[in-house]
Design a binder for these strands. Sequence first.
DNA 1: AAATATCAATTACATATGTAATCAAAACGT
DNA 2: ACGTTTTGATTACATATGTAATTGATATTT
Lengths: 330, 330
Amino acid sequence: MGADDSNNEQDSEEQLLVRVAWHYFMEGLTQSEIASALGTNRPRVNRLIGEARRSGLVTITLNSHLTACVELEGILCRRFGLDRAIIVPTPTKKEALAEILGGAGAELLTQLLNLRTPQRIGVGWGQTVREMVRKMPPFRHPGLSVSSVMGGLTRGIEINTFDIASDLARRIGAECSYFAAPIYASSAESRDAIMNQNVFQEASANAAASDVVFLSVGDMTDRSLMVRNGVPRDLPISELIEQGACGDIMGQFIDRQGKPVDHPLNARTLALPLADLKGVKNVVLMSGGLNKAEVIAAALVGKHANTLICDEETARKALELADEVTAQAG
Amino acid sequence: MGADDSNNEQDSEEQLLVRVAWHYFMEGLTQSEIASALGTNRPRVNRLIGEARRSGLVTITLNSHLTACVELEGILCRRFGLDRAIIVPTPTKKEALAEILGGAGAELLTQLLNLRTPQRIGVGWGQTVREMVRKMPPFRHPGLSVSSVMGGLTRGIEINTFDIASDLARRIGAECSYFAAPIYASSAESRDAIMNQNVFQEASANAAASDVVFLSVGDMTDRSLMVRNGVPRDLPISELIEQGACGDIMGQFIDRQGKPVDHPLNARTLALPLADLKGVKNVVLMSGGLNKAEVIAAALVGKHANTLICDEETARKALELADEVTAQAG
DNA sequence: AAATATCAATTACATATGTAATCAAAACGT
DNA sequence: ACGTTTTGATTACATATGTAATTGATATTT
């Protein structure tokens, strides 16, 4: 009898829980309505609703392939101390990825511009950034400026840093400034000489003063435009790889910790230095594709960005690689 | 390209929806937090949450065998115009049903008593009512009264209407009054003569003045205590069945519409008349078991109760039977 | 190009919600 | 039987929510 009684007690407790949950989640009654219908007080109903959710009596499921992305965004933010992550489902057609990521970037920039906060926008280089600019809806806010954060390429005309910056500037009615020079000088000394010129001082200052910078990273394979058309022909990529390079940010090659590798090429780069990039409040890293997972991981571990725009598959891989790196280092 | 663009539009719309839903339902952020995190306004987030629920993006499920009961309660209330329905899962051990329903009744009565509203409580007869009384926690509120709403049985001592009423009265410290007579008089004339006596006038008035009445119904099978021990031995049950009786409320036999059947026995009943029962604000019908489904349906169709305490299986069957009855009648 | 229509963002407000503090009752031990 | 501890109900209040009205921006039509 005693056991029976306690069972009844529990049963009626669960009954109450189910009743409350039903009325609240299924019928949409207010907590007060439920309380008076069930002959209790509202605070209790409130507690019971919480209990119902915590105990798993109530299960809430999101029914979309996008759910996993949103969850991943949270994980990435926590793992890399990001302020924001935008993860899109990896498309079946890989060639559509740049366009998708670019669209996401354009949306973000539009959002930021509507808040009127960023006045100076820095742009890097790459297919994804190019696509972002293409997708920017044309509108004008007064007082905006766009600056390229890196020098241009001398070979291969597919995408040019000057074009990207000036196109964006035209679309949003902004002032525009570039590094009017090739990305790599012939030597470290040459670089310093160029940078000491007034126009470059100014370009560099403009870039460093950006409120937000949108940039991509490049990997070390032949798929990278930087590897194919940026790095001087007489410099074998293997040299960089031997120094631990796993990719570049603004033409500056970094290792798996995100630190610039010890190679002369880095000293020849005409671009916003990585150290100065850290002074920029918002750095949006927009890159995707499994081949870039390692550089993305490196850039994030090195805390070169506070915002990531990426595809799901690559982001997961990057998380994995980053864990390996920190496990070795730590 | 056009198709691609529109896909992107939809995609980003769904992305927003999923993002909002995720933050709200999974991470428990407030709508304002979500709005600012996603760069929109709160009203939009609010709308999106509604959309997410309506569109089926968010699925909320209650994970309990009791869920079906609570849903059924709502259906029963709407179908029969009940103020309240308490449906418990049908137990595997049928013999436990009366105890379970009794417990539910006791809980309800306790609840009502705590509200201090009902001062006069009427009780019928039956195993379920007996169990309810047994389960009542002993406590006292001043000014309560209990009255039996029907006469007693002369054969079979298992459960007595007097005992039920007086036991309940004792437990809650109430005054008590009965119909101190057998449930059936020898004739209609005899019944009228008895009822004209002062004590019975008083008992009847007490019963009719109840704030709440707890009663059960009986079916026409041998399982019914009323059939076995209440109906005079010289009266074949078949006579009542021929008149369309499908069971009794307080010894008064009703047809499938819930109307008293045209049989002399009904005129011999010493109990609160069904017409007077309709004057009682709260009539709690507590009965269960598949054999009683038909009477329960009849009683509900006849609107003799505003509260039902029943088991799931029986309640479903009663719903079904009631639909048949009203389909024929309408 | 001007005027209108349409849509979404902002504001505003009444209501609902979550939570802490107070209060009453019951259970427990002394 | 009295006081203590624990439990749950009530109150109170700051915050969050749902919704309607207003405003402003964009698109459409004449």
